[in-house]
């Protein structure tokens, strides 16, 4: 059976909120190392990958591999009943028909219990190759969201260029064009404001802004976002879910190709 207790329901609430417009039904794959999710959007342009390692939970117990087939709209309805600071416990049997969710207030004076019906989802899993990215940008997540939403007002796509001069986001549309350039920046007093750029070779790729803006719904999960680019491979946008390494919410986006 599965028993997984999260100290803050907020994490799962925000994950589901961030992905529910991209993915409708998906399997939460549970095993002794934690809970993972991988799903593509309907048009197969974007891939969502979530990992919540066992050490993000206390306690965590999962005796055998369990796939929890969940409709995210339904899960959203149940999670709405949880306060951000509630303790959340997930329970399921080995071959479950339903997922049991318990929300406890931190003072333990309120306990809510819900059962969510599960579904059989036959989802293909993709192998994501280990990639040494040519450019890695770590920046405030709200700043990335602002850039994407500002540029989407002008155009449906953005070209991201990484060079020794910095990271340049360029778009052009019917009313005109725009660009935003980011340079490495270290804020000694507030390192959350830092912009870190690692570059091994120049990169230029074009992406749909609709998807990038959608990914930015995860900005509430983490102060910083990591964006990884290499020529001719999908862009990676990654948010840390907890302070523990390995627990993250990742979005991959296929580039626009050809001319």
């Amino acid at each position: 059976m599965l028993e997984a207790r999260l100290d803050q329901a907020e994490i799962l609430k925000k994950v589901v909120d961030a992905i529910k417009d991209l993915v409708q039904d998906c399997n939460f794959d549970c095993n002794d190392s934690g809970i993972a999710l991988q799903a593509m959007d309907n048009s197969h342009v974007a891939l969502v990958s979530m990992n919540l390692q066992a050490d993000s939970f206390a306690p965590y117990r999962c005796d055998r591999n369990i796939a929890l087939g969940v409709n995210l709209t339904s899960l959203t309805k149940v999670l709405r009943a949880a306060q951000n600071t509630d303790i959340l416990t997930l329970r399921a049997l080995d071959a479950p028909d339903s997922l049991n969710l318990v929300f406890e207030s931190q003072d333990k004076d309120r306990i809510s219990e819900y059962d969510l019906k599960l579904m059989d989802i036959d989802q293909e899993h993709l192998g994501i190759p280990e990639t040494e990215y040519a450019a890695t940008i770590k920046m405030p997540s709200v700043e990335f969201r602002r850039i994407c939403t500002d540029l989407m007002a002008l155009s449906e796509s953005v070209t991201i260029e990484a060079s020794k001069d910095g990271i340049k986001f360029t778009c052009s549309g019917d009313i005109g064009n725009g660009s935003v350039t980011l340079r490495q920046h270290t804020n000694v007093e507030n390192e959350k404001e830092n912009i870190e750029i690692e570059l091994s070779e120049p990169v230029a790729l074009t992406f749909s802004l609709k998807y990038l803006v959608n990914f930015c719904k995860a900005a509430g999960l983490s102060n910083t976002v990591t964006i990884c680019l290499s020529n001719e491979v999908p862009l990676l946008v990654s948010y840390a879910l907890t302070s523990k390494a390995g627990s993250n919410l990742r979005f991959y986006l296929a580039p626009k190709i050809g001319d």
Partner: peptide
Amino acid sequence: PKQQGSITSFFGAP
């Protein structure tokens, strides 16, 4: 104009 690529053409079966 550029065409939207598909994620499955980059990431295959595991």
